[in-house]
Amino acid sequence: MIKQVSIFLENKEGRLGRVLKILGENNINIRALSIAETADFGILRLIVNKPEQALVVLKNAGFLVSETDVLAIEVPDTPGGLAATLEPLAESEINIEYMYAFLAKKSDNAIVIFRVEDSKKAIEVLNSIGLQVLSGETIYSL
């Protein structure tokens, strides 16, 4: 499973920049990010190469952060690639809370990060159709 760093951000100028600057100064590299927002606040979700360290430096800088377990899979970067993967999850009544994707370097695949309530069950379903979830080490060191 992958450690995602979630950060609470108010919708005001400079907050996102501040997070990115702190990570840069601490030599922490971002693999993927997504932002979910309402009118007043947002949640910044990050996959970084050093999640534990990111958690500490952001917390020390006064940010409200938490660590969440998410899953990552590789899907073919072709039309319909993601749909084929998600179908079995829906059939097993596994609800995806949120997801985001990015392209892997040096490969023809896309990497999809997603969060479900029951990660263990999701992994079983994915394994049953021959898909391996990616390990933390794989993602962090991309």
Binding site: Q4, S6, F8, A36, E37, T38, F41, I43, R45, L64, S66, T68, E97, Y98, R115
Partner: peptide, 14 residues
């Protein structure tokens, strides 16, 4: 928002 209120899900905070 305190640590025990915070959730990585927008729905939780809403």
């Amino acid at each position: 928002v305190s640590e025990n209120m915070f959730s990585d899900k927008i729905g939780g905070l809403e």
